[in-house]
């Protein structure tokens, strides 16, 4: 249904930790594998062994460089690099749903997952136009819109052991940078993580109210600012090798069982 539900029972989504993501693309390929074999049409690839290979992916990992603004404590800060996975954010106010002329795009009432009913989709592409995040890709072979399903065919799947009822990308992430849960429940692990680490929205000004949250990278390159605490630890025990031997002798005496 093209109309958005007034509210959803739960807000299932992902929390992605930008402080931990190493940019390995494991989530990208795992997603490709699972979704090629499962929900809807396979994710096809065009010219896979030729000059312009391209294909449908539901999750992609970008990377950005941030040049911090100099300040008094860091007059010449080093540039930072942030790996940045991105899939559908399962927005509460999902414009991709309301623009859809056929009702193929819809948001589920029970968990807020935004899905495409591939049997109804005409492949007009408008939903992808309306998504600020680039979360939808039209499959060229099948002519229908593909997007992250939040692995709706895993998370409730009774053929999978309980622990495995999480999205494929979450299960596979070697660094543990992806978390899955109910962001509508303030007591869920993911909600707590978001609160603790200052989880943020992408393009909040778009008014899409994404369910997925991003945990910002922690502050970096601060060790020199701690020199006042660290320097005393490094006070020399002696200036000369001779003095050092003297210190050594005394220090050895102090060891348990060290006295002559």
């Amino acid at each position: 249904m093209t109309q958005l539900p007034n509210s959803t029972d739960r807000k299932m989504g992902l929390v992605i930790d930008l402080d931990t993501c190493v940019g390995c693309h494991a989530c990208v390929i795992s997603c490709k594998g699972w979704n090629t074999e499962n929900y809807g049409a396979p994710l096809s690839d065009q010219d896979p062994y030729g000059s312009d290979p391209s294909g449908t992916f539901l999750n992609r990992v970008h990377s950005y460089e941030v040049q911090p603004t100099p300040c008094s404590s860091q007059p010449a800060p080093a540039a930072q690099l942030v790996h940045f996975p991105k899939s559908c954010l399962h927005c509460e106010d999902a414009p991709c749903v309301t623009v859809c002329p056929t009702g193929a795009s819809y948001k589920r009432v029970e968990d807020g997952i935004v899905l495409v009913n591939e049997d109804h989709c005409i492949g007009c592409g408008l939903c992808a136009w309306s998504c600020p995040y680039g979360a939808r890709e039209l499959d060229l072979a099948e002519g229908v819109m593909k997007k992250c399903t939040l692995c709706v065919d895993r998370i409730y799947n009774e053929n999978l052991p309980e622990v495995d009822r999480v999205p494929s990308c979450v299960r596979t992430c070697p660094a543990g940078a992806r978390h899955f849960g109910d962001l509508g429940d303030p007591d869920s692990d993911v909600s707590k993580l978001v609160a603790e680490r200052g989880g943020m929205d992408l393009m909040p000004e778009m008014g899409t109210k994404p369910v997925n949250k991003y945990l910002p990278p922690r502050p970096k390159d601060t060790i020199e600012e701690e020199i006042d605490i660290l320097a005393p630890l490094l006070a020399p025990v002696a200036e000369e090798p001779q003095g050092f031997m003297g210190w050594l002798d005394k220090a050895l005496d102090k060891l348990p069982g060290g006295a002559h």
Binding site: C21, V22, S63, G176, K220, D221, I223
Partner: peptide, 29 residues
């Protein structure tokens, strides 16, 4: 392992001319 120690908020120092991958998430580069 990096994920584990990040979770605990322990410190990672990356010594590398290039700040990508593991070194990108290092607290100190």
């Amino acid at each position: 392992g990096l994920g584990k120690i990040k979770k605990r908020g322990a410190r990672v120092i990356g010594v590398n001319p290039i700040r990508s991958g593991y070194n990108a998430i290092a607290d100190e580069w």
